[in-house]
Design a protein around this nucleic acid. Structure first.
Length: 156
DNA sequence: GCCAACGTTGGC
DNA sequence: GCCAACGTTGGC
């Protein structure tokens, strides 16, 4: 089982939206590196839901991958902001996964808090300078530190 | 609103 | 294949 982190702007789609929907398709990823990470996701993997471009930014909750990568049909929808004319049925180019709401953390784990963790989160790509990836892997050590050390999340 | 960092595009 | 120009991300 692997851990991931996925960014979304809460004004567009936040953790409360996912909670309401239960399960949703993570569409609109238009970056090759992020897409490739999504293709590596397996059913049962856990992903942190990160709120970006807001005050304050941070990790808002947890979700689970319930369907592995399949074509992102919004790329072929002319009315969609994610429309990409290069996408075709034979070569959809872009992928998405389905994610299920697991929990919203009682308190947002802010970016500032994450930066204060020092060694425990040294390898977290999110904290690397200039990082703009919207989908990224999180190693087990960092993931457990965030879940158990910061979120107080208990696995059943 | 600013701007650093990064990805993409397209001329050559 | 290089690289300048441009667009986007996202923290501040």
């Amino acid at each position: 089982m692997n851990y991931w982190l996925m960014k979304s702007e809460p004004e567009v789609f936040g953790i409360t939206d996912l909670k309401l929907r239960g399960t949703d398709a993570w569409d609109g990823v238009r970056n090759y590196q992020a897409r490739n990470f999504m293709k590596d996701m397996k059913k049962g993997d856990l992903a942190f839901f990160y709120h970006s471009n807001c005050k304050p930014p941070g990790i808002a909750g947890l979700m689970e991958v319930v369907r592995e990568a399949y074509p992102d049909h919004t790329a072929r929808d002319q009315g969609s902001p994610y429309f990409d004319p290069r996408s075709s049925p034979k070569n959809p180019i872009w992928s998405m996964v389905d994610v299920k709401f697991v929990c919203a953390f009682s308190q947002l784990i802010t970016l500032e808090t994450l930066r204060e963790q020092g060694e425990a989160l040294n390898d977290l790509l999110l904290l690397r300078k200039g990082n703009r990836l919207s989908v990224m892997p999180v190693d087990k050590k960092a993931a457990e530190h965030i879940m158990h050390g910061l979120a107080g999340y208990k696995t059943t």
